[in-house]
Design a protein around this nucleic acid. Structure first.
Lengths: 303, 303
DNA sequence: AGCTATTAGTTGACGATAGCAACTATCAGG
DNA sequence: CCTGATAGTTGCTATCGTCAACTAATAGCT
C-alpha cells in the first residue's frame, strides 16, 4: 500500500508531464509559458496590478517579473501607469493586449477541452470534485469559493459515507455510527416531503465540504440532522451557514420550533448550536458507539 | 457555476505554483528539475533504459535528453553500456548514483511530507483518492495499479452514492434507484453475517473503481448484488475480477449456487455474468425506474 | 528637516531549460 | 550496395530562474 507522500510525488510527476503537453500552444503565440501565466494574471485583475503582486502570485523572482513585464510592454499588450505611490507602476492590459489575450485564452481553452473530450458530464463533475479536493487538502482553500445548494442524486449517500469515515477517524465510533447514518439518510429519502424537508450541501467547486438535513419531526417541530463539516474546511463559516439555512427554512415552512440531537463530545457543533439560539433541553447518558458519552437534545423556538 | 475546463486550468495554475515551491530542494543538490526527474526514471528502471525511452516518458526533446544524460554521466551517477543494437546506449545507475539518488529521494520525500504535515490519516486517504481520481480521469489509468479489497467503514455508502449517480447519468433512473441502493446497503450492513457475506471494492491507489456485494439470499443461495464499474475504469478487467471473487467466496462459504438480479439494458454486466458461467433463469417486465425494461434473474451452480 | 530602513522596480551576469536543425553511426529490408 | 529509418550528439538560439548590485521613492523616527 502506498502512502500519501508517494502518491503525491507520483501525481506531481504525472502532472508535470500533463501540463508540459499543454504548453506548446503558448510557444506558437510567441510567448513563453511564464509570460503567458503572467499575462493571464494581468487579464484577471480588473484594476492595475503591481509587479510585486504578480511576482508573489506566480512565485516568481522580482527581476524575472520585471523583464517579462518589459517584454510584454514592448509588444504593446500591457501599459504601465504611475500610481499614487511614485515607486509603483500599476500594470493593465491595453486594447491590443485584451484582444491578444482573448485569442490566446480561447486556444488554451480549446487545448484543455481536447484533453478531456472523452469525458461525459458525470465524469467532468467527478474530475472537478477531485481537483477541488486536492486543492483544499493542499491548502489552497482560501482561493476557492463555496456555496450552499440543495441536495442532488447521490448526495445523501455521500453524506453518510463522509460522516461514517469522519466520526470513525475522529472518535472511533465505527460501524454502529455507519449503520445509523445509513438508516437516517435512507429514511429521509424514502419519506421525503418537499417543502417540509430539505438537505443542503456546502459545495466548493464541486467538492462536498459539509452538509445538513432538516426533517419533519412531527408535532410542528423541524429536526436538524447529520450536520457535519469536513476537517479541512473548518473555520470557513460553513457550519454556521448550514445551521442558519436550516433555521431559515424551518421558519418559512411554518414549524413552531427546531430540535436536534447531538453528543456532548461534539464540542464545536454545540458551540454552533448555542450561537444560533439553540438551548439544551435534556441529557441522556448512553454507550451506543462503544464508549460512554451523553446524548443531548437541543431546541430553538421559531418566530 | 464553473465548468471542468475552467476548473482544470485553475488547477494547473495552482499546481504549477505548488510544484514550483517544491523545486528548490533539487537546486541544492546541484541538479536541475529535469535532470532530477530523469535520474528518478533511471533509478526506477531495473534494466538499462534507453535515452529515447526516457525522452518519451518525460516528454523531453532528444537533444535535451542527450545533454542531461551526458551531464549525469560526467558526474559519475550513471553509466552507459553498449546494447546488442550498436546504436543503443542503455543507461543504468552506478553505485555512486544509487547512493546519491537515495539521498536526493529522501530529501524530496521529506520536503513533500512537510507540505502535508498538517493532514491526519483520514485526510491523507482523501488526498490519495482525489489524486488517483484525477489521474484516472485524465487518462493515466494504464500507469496505475488496482486491487480488490474487502469493504471498510464508509465504503458501502460510497458505493450507493456512486451507483446512484452512475445509473442516473447513464440511464436516468433517478431517485427510485437511489432509494433502492440505500436500502440494499443499509440492510446489508445491519444484517451483516461475517464469513457468509462480504463486499469488495476495486481500489486503485485509494480511489474506488468498482464494487460488489455478496449477500445470503437464504435457501443455500448466495446473491451477487450492486456490481458496478466506474466508466473511466472499464476495459481493465475489474468487472470480471469482482464477479470471480464473488463466485470464489460463495463457493468457500458453502453455498449451493449464486444468484443475481439485473436489468436487460445493462448489457456489459450481462456479458460478464454469462462469461462467468451464469445463466438467465427468468425475465420480468417492469417500470420501476420510470421507463419500461426487463428485470432478469440469473443463476450459477457452485461446485 | 534630516537620517535610516524599507519597498518597488531595474539591470547585469550566469547557468539551467527548451526547441530546432544539422550531423554521425547503426540497422533493416530490398 | 543502396535507401530509409532509428539512436544519439552537437551547435544555435531564446526563455527561464537565481543572485546581486543598483536607482528611486516612501515611511518612520528623532
Amino acid at each position: 500500500m502506498t502512502d500519501a507522500v508517494t502518491a503525491l510525488r507520483a501525481f506531481n510527476r504525472f502532472h508535470t508531464r500533463f501540463a508540459g503537453v499543454l504548453q506548446p500552444s503558448y510557444m506558437q503565440s510567441g510567448l513563453g509559458v511564464t509570460a503567458a501565466r503572467l499575462l493571464y494574471e494581468v487579464a484577471q485583475a480588473p484594476e492595475g496590478v503591481l509587479a510585486r503582486q504578480l511576482a508573489e502570485r506566480l512565485g516568481l523572482d522580482a527581476g524575472q517579473t520585471s523583464r517579462i513585464v518589459a517584454g510584454l510592454e514592448r509588444r504593446g499588450w500591457i501599459a504601465r501607469e504611475r500610481g499614487e505611490d511614485g515607486r509603483q507602476r500599476p500594470i493593465r492590459l491595453t486594447e491590443e493586449g485584451r484582444a491578444f489575450f482573448a485569442a490566446l485564452d480561447a486556444r488554451t481553452r480549446a487545448d484543455t477541452e481536447a484533453r478531456i473530450a472523452g469525458l461525459d458530464q458525470a465524469q467532468r463533475d467527478a474530475l472537478m470534485e477531485a481537483l477541488s479536493r486536492v486543492r483544499l487538502l493542499l491548502g489552497d482553500g482560501a482561493a476557492m469559493a463555496w456555496r450552499l445548494r440543495p441536495f442532488r442524486i447521490g448526495d445523501l449517500a455521500e453524506v453518510a459515507a463522509r460522516q461514517a469515515r469522519l466520526y470513525d477517524a475522529e472518535y472511533g465510533w465505527g460501524s454502529a455510527m455507519e449503520r445509523l447514518q445509513g438508516e437516517i439518510t435512507t429514511t429521509f429519502l424514502r419519506d421525503f416531503k418537499p417543502g417540509r424537508e430539505q438537505a443542503w450541501i456546502a459545495d466548493c467547486e464541486g467538492a462536498m465540504l459539509g452538509a445538513v438535513l432538516v426533517a419533519d419531526a412531527g408535532d410542528d417541530a423541524a429536526q436538524l440532522r447529520l450536520l457535519h463539516v469536513e476537517k479541512e474546511a473548518r473555520g470557513m463559516g460553513i457550519g454556521s451557514a448550514l445551521v442558519d439555512r436550516c433555521i431559515a427554512f424551518a421558519g418559512e415552512a411554518g414549524y413552531d420550533r427546531i430540535i436536534l440531537w447531538t453528543q456532548d463530545v461534539l464540542t464545536s457543533a454545540r458551540r454552533l448550536y448555542e450561537a444560533a439560539g439553540f438551548r439544551r433541553v435534556s441529557v441522556e447518558r448512553h454507550a451506543i458507539f462503544g464508549t460512554e458519552m451523553a446524548g443531548e437534545r437541543w431546541e430553538r423556538p421559531l418566530p
